[in-house]
Nucleic acid binder design. Structure first.
Lengths: 200, 200
DNA sequence: ACCTGAACACCGTTCAAGT
DNA sequence: ACCTGAACACCGTTCAAGT
């Protein structure tokens, strides 16, 4: 008898469920979507879902960590990009577009609300965030050594402020149901200019 | 027959329920506290509670609006205070202390998550926020005219960035379960300095 | 090994009955 | 007019039974 009929099945099922959940959360938010709806969307039974996830909260936790992994990848691109400011603007564009006023913005708030209550999720997100902030700080330091920006502020502090502003702006956009990222990107860019003070 | 045995009763009951709810939310968050727990804390029955609030969401909406009203009052003090930067630092201190890492920080996230889904709450908060941002912008403009800060950025844009950063930092503090506001206040202050560039 | 779906427990909300 | 608390509806989670 075969130990695993299909070794890739668990991963596939998880993806299937997460996709369905993301779709549902985007439409109705975490609180208002039911497990039954996720199951219908994923074409799976409740019993099967609970084989792959411990709870409803566990599902949004997985989504949150996925999103953070994407953010890290984005920051890698910032680090590799030509201009620091241009890279940051690009980061902001992707971030604002991902968490757009229409649907996903609420997802961001859901994630935070969940993290504020779930110490395990908070810790996991925090670790991811530390990595992200570290990469941004590294990019800033590099630019400072290049001499292309003004080295007044500690890099880690600048990175922290930039991320706080990015997330704060995303929240405020969500509240206003803003969509269309270009104006917000411009604002974030001028903001970054004032924090980082590029020399030319 | 008396029309109202006690005309002040409705307001008293609402306050009684809101106090109880705040206490419960602080301890276990919005999702995890039950109506029954709020009722026990407020010494009232479920039926009576629903006479004064339409739903559980309606309760957190009322709490959120109360908090915003407080924020407005704080901004008035900023506007009246001696130095703009000192006023902002004071604002940050109160804000960070109110939404501290221990308990109330999660409340902030709960409010946002609820607002992201409830258009009526979103609109109400947005109106309050517009007033707050307007007052901050007015304070900035005044300082610009005084000549005490550098008038490079449009005041409304600076106000927006400052509030976004303040809220973003509060969120990040909540994630890290930080308590003790002084370090965060210092960070926000340097940040404000770089945005506003006071001349002395 | 993996899945189904009925059953269970819990909680937001309502409402008939009381004062 | 205001309140009580039992009853209802709904939803997250479990588990016995199937393949």
């Amino acid at each position: 008898m075969p130990r695993h009929a299909d070794p890739a099945l668990p991963e596939r099922r998880r993806g299937q469920i997460l996709d369905a959940a993301r779709e549902c959360f985007r439409e109705r938010g975490f609180r208002l979507t039911t497990i039954e709806e996720i199951c219908a969307e994923a074409r799976i039974s409740p019993g099967a879902l609970y084989r792959y996830f411990d709870s409803k909260a566990d599902i949004i936790a997985a989504i949150a960590l996925d999103a953070r992994a994407e953010a890290e990848a984005m920051l890698d691109r910032v680090n590799g990009s030509e201009g620091l400011i241009a890279g940051l603007a690009e980061l902001a564009r992707v971030f604002f577009e991902t968490f757009d006023g229409d649907g996903d913005a609420a997802l961001l708030a859901d994630i935070w609300a969940e993290a504020a209550r779930d110490p395990l999720l908070a810790k996991a997100l925090q670790q991811r965030d530390q990595i992200a902030a570290g990469r941004l700080a590294a990019a800033i330091e590099r630019a400072q050594r290049d001499g292309s920006i003004y080295p007044a502020l500690p890099a880690s502090e600048s990175a922290e402020a930039l991320l706080a502003c990015l997330e704060g702006m995303a929240m405020r956009r969500a509240l206003r149901r803003e969509s269309g990222a270009t104006e917000a990107v411009r604002r974030f860019r001028t903001f970054a200019l004032h924090i980082l003070k590029p020399k030319r």
